[in-house]
Design a protein around this nucleic acid. Structure first.
Lengths: 324, 324
DNA sequence: GATGAGACTGCAAGCGTTTGCAACAAAATC
DNA sequence: GATTTTGTTGCAAACGCTTGCAGTCTCATC
């Protein structure tokens, strides 16, 4: 069916190994022979069979990206940047959506391991140990989580979160609700720590709320606890949860930012179009996607790469309400 | 390095072919032998090498999904549903983002062709001819476009659009701007036709605006033309463009829906959180993703599958303004 | 003019599976 | 009891490509 090396060899009167070298080791074949081979290949429409090549070289030219939820607007730009970078390096990319489930995550890594040269785990939920074990089977780069011994691309949410808390303090807020997502989230813990540190420095009380699923519904579910704690500002685990808070506030007739300031994390496209537009901590997601691919393909010794974040102030934050 | 059939064979004292059959043709091997083999395999942690298997069976167990822009919120749910369905069928999925470029699209199909059992082209931009040619190399299912001879999953935007126009007419609108996206978009043409038909039936004038890129910026860029045409309502190519219109309207101080009603297409997550919340035509995207995978894996004779759409009325539409 | 060094090319053994075929034994059929 | 069937297994040839090795041929070198 498809045109193979053998066909090209026959057509150009040389051995298959010469044809092979004409493609993948040009300097080992005579220039004129090579030209003849390439011409024949072109004529026949030859395209190397990546599967066969992979079998013999043990390099597939494929990468995998494992994410918790493709539909979570945080991931698509990461995915897009990663796949674009991979394409530029002549690699293809698999995606696996784990639906936030650890078992699925593990199985995804396992079953992908055989047909990729490396995997990018975006904000994985597995235990460090498991990830390290899996890294013995296939090169792994982790995004948004630090695991010693592995290459990690980190978006230092702490920076932006700290700035957010400082800004809220400036605006007069003294009670901040920290609405957390999944307990296993590295970024979440990191944000919490940064928030608490900054809060301490600025004399702001922190009220922990959650954990809740990192979804709009999760955010909405947290609203009553936020209000109950007497907080005038809330920092959500991510934009999606912040949206949930916004929606719940609207339902309850609580004006934002009049009575409650809300801050998200991620700066997903959505954030710009909420009502009110969401103040949020912007993550360098595209850069992270590209960096992860580079790290994987370069496969140098494990290294951490820390990318900065910044506060994007929109309309969901404002001065603390006067005391009742 | 990795455990192979040979290792398992040695460990269980049978020939590799027997081991192979123990996995992929159970009925051809004695039950007790099989048990012994499986035990040995389990013990050694054997995992079949999909690449090698693919070389010999010519089935890779992989699918590819080609989309114009992963970051366009329309696609992630489709991708997610497709990959979940594929996973359920023990398949992996490649993604390719074409960045809206035809050449990239074609090259993506070509280079993926060798390592997938089939491709899903979501809203492709290529010419019908090209797609049909490519379909000779690899099974293709097309989403959101009808191409004779190929299996297609169609979301009949016409239905929802027709209803939207009817509703706008009810609200008193008589001048509707049709803000179009890429000229090559099947859905776009389909929507335009449906809008014009419905407009004709309800005595509404249609003003064509565009084409513009199917982005927020594209929508914003179209605003002046919309206003200039004297339209009191606009139907955008997609939600993203509708958002652009909303933003531009806000910038120009034009109240929505007070002076201009805006309708999007897609009902992306974003739509619910715009200011005002966007009235839009909802697409059954997840269902389409699943259906596309099923069609591909079943690989029956080509068939079309038409899924319905509906109008989701939110706050960006309202009564037409009184005549000036 | 013998010798060694390149430059090029072919040969053949893999890579880990699958699968048609043959071999053999045991069971079933007449 | 001879013959066929059935069940089970091994053998070996693919699948399309890469690559270490060895062979040939041409030149430069002394």
């Amino acid at each position: 069916m498809a045109v193979t090396l053998k066909d090209v060899a026959r057509a150009s009167g040389v051995h298959v190994s010469t044809v092979s070298r004409a493609f993948s080791a040009a300097h080992l074949v005579n220039a004129r022979t090579r030209a003849r081979v390439l011409a024949a290949a072109d004529e026949l429409g030859y395209r190397p069979n990546r599967v066969a090549r992979a079998l013999s070289t043990r390099r597939t030219g494929n990468l995998g990206v494992v994410v918790a939820d493709i539909a979570n607007p945080f991931f698509p730009p990461l995915l897009k940047a990663a796949q674009e970078q991979a394409r530029a390096r002549d690699h293809h990319v698999f995606i696996a959506d784990t639906d936030e489930r650890t078992e699925v995550e593990e199985e995804a890594v396992r079953s992908l391991a055989g047909q990729v040269d490396g995997l990018i785990l975006a904000a994985p939920r597995m235990a460090d140990r498991r990830i390290r074990e899996l890294a013995a089977e296939v090169p792994i780069v982790v995004v948004n989580r630090r695991i010693s011994g592995l290459s990690c691309v980190l978006m230092d949410v702490g920076e932006g979160v700290g700035r957010a808390v400082a800004r809220l303090a400036d605006l007069g807020h003294r009670d901040l609700a920290l609405v957390s997502g999944p307990a296993a989230s590295w970024t979440g813990r990191r944000a919490a720590r940064a928030a608490e540190t900054a809060a301490g420095e600025h004399g702001v009380r922190v009220h922990r709320v959650g954990p809740q699923p990192p979804t709009e519904a999760g955010g909405a579910a947290a609203f009553d606890a936020v209000a109950g704690a007497g907080a005038t500002a809330a920092l959500a685990h991510n934009d999606l949860m912040a949206l949930g808070l916004l929606a719940a506030a609207r339902d309850r007739g609580v004006p934002v930012p009049g009575r409650l300031s809300v801050v998200g994390v991620d700066d997903t496209l959505t954030a710009r179009h909420t009502r009110p537009a969401l103040t949020t901590v912007a993550m360098p997601v595209e850069a992270a996607g590209r960096a992860a691919v580079d790290l994987l393909l370069r496969d140098a010794t494990p290294q951490d790469l820390v990318l900065g974040t910044r506060l994007v102030e929109r309309d969901s934050t404002g001065p603390a309400p006067a005391q009742a």
